[in-house]
Computed example of a mutant assay.
Amino acid sequence: MKKRLRKKLRLREFQEMGFSVKFDLAELGSDEAYFTFWDKLVEVVEANHLLMGGGLNNFFVGTDSRRTATEADRKAIETWLHQQPEVSAVNVSPLVDAWHGSFE
């Protein structure tokens, strides 16, 4: 397969990785606390040059450019979630192919 086609299909050296995140969020008591939590989560994701998409407590994280997510990116999000007192049952999947992988 030619390099141009591999790049277009995001294969081999052009593969882009990402990971799934699932967690339980405790009742926060007010809309303001709820939105504050999500603002902080989005800030952490964007500070690592990542993007998130999907549901509220179950989403996929990929990169915001043609780079790939790394194990360090995955650990940064997982560590931050574990540090939040309102979050429990954190499950961060291993890195998977963001374009051709299976997502859970």
Score class of each variant (00 low, 15 high):
L56Y: 10
Q15N: 01
V61Y: 03
F19S: 01
V44R: 15
N57L: 07
D64W: 12
W38Y: 11
E78A: 14
V42H: 13
A98V: 00
H82G: 13
R10D: 04
G53Q: 14
H49N: 07
G62Q: 15
L50P: 03
L81Y: 09
E71Q: 13
L5D: 14
E16A: 05
S65N: 12
E86D: 12
W80V: 03
V21G: 03
F14S: 03
L41Y: 11
N48Q: 12
R67V: 11
D64Q: 10
L81W: 06
L81G: 06
L81N: 02
E86M: 05
G101D: 03
F103Q: 02
E46Y: 15
F19E: 00
N91Y: 15
D31T: 04
F60M: 10
S20D: 12
N48A: 12
N48W: 02
N48S: 14
E46H: 11
R74A: 11
E32A: 10
S30K: 14
E16L: 13
W99P: 00
R4T: 11
P85A: 13
R4P: 02
F23Q: 01
L81C: 14
L51V: 03
S20N: 11
L50T: 06
F19V: 02
L5V: 10
P94C: 01
T79E: 06
A33I: 03
G101C: 05
L25S: 00
A33F: 05
E71R: 09
K7I: 08
T70Q: 10
Q15C: 11
V44T: 14
E27C: 05
H100N: 12
L51Q: 15
E86K: 07
L95K: 10
I77S: 08
G62D: 01
Q83L: 06
H49L: 08
G54W: 04
F19G: 00
R10W: 02
L81R: 01
S20F: 06
K8I: 07
E78D: 09
W99H: 09
L25W: 02
F23L: 06
A26E: 03
E104F: 00
F23K: 04
V87L: 09
D73W: 08
A76M: 04
F103N: 01
R4A: 07
G54E: 07
R10G: 02
S65H: 13
R6S: 06
A76N: 08
E78Y: 05
S30D: 09
A98W: 03
A76H: 13
M1H: 05
L81Q: 01
D73F: 12
H82D: 11
K8R: 05
K3I: 14
L51F: 14
K7Y: 04
V21A: 12
E43I: 00
P85N: 04
Q83F: 00
R6N: 15
E78C: 15
H100E: 03
V92T: 00
